[in-house]
Design a binder for these strands. Sequence first.
DNA 1: AACCAGGCGCATA
DNA 2: TATGCGCATGGT
Length: 301
Amino acid sequence: MRSKTDVELSGRTAHAAPQARQYRAKRDLPQGGLRPTEDVEEIEITGMSPKATFECGQCFRWDADESGADSCSYSGVAFGKTARVYERDGKVLLEASPGDFEAVWRDYFDLDEDYAAIREKVGIDGHMRRAAEFGAGIRILRQDRWEALCSFIISQCNNIPRIKKIISALCANFGEEIAAGVYSFPSAERLAALTEPDLAPLRAGYRAKYIIGAARAFAEGRELDTAEKLLELEGVGKKVASCVALFGLHDLDAFPIDTWVKKALAKRFSPDFDPKIFSPYAGVAQQYMFYYERSGVLEND
DNA sequence: AACCAGGCGCATA
DNA sequence: TATGCGCATGGT
């Protein structure tokens, strides 16, 4: 079975194998900035599309950079670190502080998983093969458990631009400034010390109560390492719990059913279709379905 | 200007 | 088990 330990900054479960050499350090940029922390290293990563990975709805803290209309460059924050991922000369490059790759990003981007093999397994019919092909560059990010829980509580009955806006305000108000104008995701402990009115500036509506409640449960050390346990939190139902399982616990078999996936299931599969057919990668299949359905390339209705 | 968004909790049948 | 409603807010 899967490890229940948190993914945090260190030990990955060692299915590390052959394709572990998907990356290589390239260079350091010239220093001369004001701070030594402006040194960065560039690392090539393969089998990953920034657009697909950051826009398939699994995360809310990566944004396309302005520069050059379609430069396909994203900047984001995770585990208190910043990075930029972009394409150049047909390669995907990760730009981050030296040391952060091994400490954070290698694990975060799930670089040891063989997604080509997973796509093969979930391509059970024409539609799924097309969906998997369309989302081929998606990697399921190993996100922080608390961040995933809090983020998907906010996501309920909300649209993605506003979800990002609320989370951004949450970080700016209660996170730590880790770089100029860049904030970490606030810890559960920090939010646990707040009360509902403190969250008013976020404009999170009825979700504020759920955020505080979840923060307190998490900070108190309640066991929240399965979807079943997460379900006991107020404001966490099946959908949010399975999103947290998939993105925060890296349970690749969790299958969140939202409006888009519900639509896909109704329109493109037989009434008695059981997503368990995708096991143990139902969650990855779900992401392909979601990203494909939401993309707009499926004209028909 | 309605309609609805990666829902949930609760009431009712 | 299944459906319906209110909930806060604002994007499209």
